[in-house]
Write a protein that binds this DNA or RNA. Structure first.
Length: 309
DNA sequence: ATGATTTGACCAGC
DNA sequence: GCTGGTCAAATCAT
């Protein structure tokens, strides 16, 4: 299955979005050396992950060096019944009024997340609900969102949010289309979570690939373990890409297994040529890179001049 | 007053 | 005819 493990886009979106959140947290925690260090590491980690995934995306043959069993259950789901775990769908129609099942979207990504408030995922974009439908066979209706800047900037990105039948607290989010809006991500984001108020659900589930997973570390007091690298499918390697785990003790978070670096050897040889300039991942990236006060790693720019430009 | 959400209707694919 | 995706008027919230 060619796209069996094409989870890359979601991963990249997640990691880059997470980087945005981390950067925001960093801005709010500049006086705390410990928090600063942690956040910087986390940002770099997310960035590394994104780059790794982008690099490895064009090399299906080397997918999943490790047994899937070593990985947590993926939160990325396939939209195809034939597929086993995850995939992206690429198509061409862009936000046309009528569905075209035979021509998938140019950019469609499905994720599962329980880190969501009634479908309003903090994914860095501002969405406007435009419809809701009861879906055959589904317990819960599906909500349709389009980019708030659809008119102003002709951004055609849409997303669908639907509670899963098995667990109403878990949302299946399908992102469609490409964000052509500019610089809206930051302004659209809600204020960073307050450590005093932000609440984190216990990791009863595959916590996840939700782009705002980065908020989680702001929760104090809870003895919590959060996996932010919870992608199943043919994850390149759970060895080279360790799960990010941190705990909260006495209002201080402690990174336990911090994925700072990937195996450089693994990174080598991967061409970024597969990167489409019109993917949501790249849009996320450009939004992040252009709007964030952070500098992206220099070596990344060296490695991916096209991507960075 | 303005913008966001809700909800019934419309339309095309199957 | 059924279904999913979208539109747009009505309604709600700020």
């Amino acid at each position: 299955m060619e796209s069996a493990c094409v989870y890359e886009q979601t991963t990249v979106v997640h990691e880059l979005t997470q980087g945005i959140e981390m950067a925001k947290q960093l801005r709010l925690n500049l006086d705390s050396a410990e928090a600063r260090e942690f956040l910087i590491e986390k940002i770099l980690s997310s960035y590394d992950k994104a780059l790794f995934v982008l690099k490895s995306a064009g090399q299906p043959a080397r997918a999943s060096p490790l047994p899937e069993s070593s990985l947590p259950k993926s939160s990325i789901t396939t939209s195809s019944p034939q597929s086993t775990e995850c995939e992206f769908e690429f198509g061409q129609n862009v936000a046309s009024k009528k569905r075209k099942a035979s021509t998938p979207w140019e950019n469609e990504v499905k994720i599962l997340t329980d880190n969501e408030i009634e479908g309003n995922a903090n994914d860095g974009y501002s969405w406007r609900k435009y419809g809701q439908k009861d879906i055959l066979g589904a317990k819960f209706p599906r909500s349709y969102y389009k980019c708030s800047y659809r008119k102003v900037q002709k951004c055609l990105a849409t997303k669908q949010v639907q509670k899963t039948d098995k667990d109403p607290t878990v949302f299946e989010i399908t992102y469609r289309g490409i964000h052509t809006c500019n610089g809206v991500a930051q302004s659209a984001l809600p204020p960073p979570p307050s450590p005093e108020k932000h609440e984190i659900k216990p990791t009863h589930h595959h916590q996840l690939t939700t782009p705002n997973a980065g908020e989680n570390f702001s929760n104090p007091g809870a003895n919590l373990t959060v996996n932010t690298w919870d992608l199943g499918c043919t994850l390149p390697s759970s060895n080279s890409i360790p799960t990010t785990v941190f705990e909260f003790n006495d209002n201080v978070f402690h990174p336990l297994n911090f994925p700072n670096h990937f195996d450089e050897e693994l990174l080598q040889g991967y061409s970024p040529s597969f990167i489409s300039p019109a993917t949501s991942a790249s849009n996320y990236f450009t939004d992040w890179a252009s709007s964030s006060s952070l500098d992206y790693p220099k070596d990344a720019a060296d490695l991916y001049p096209d991507f960075m430009s």
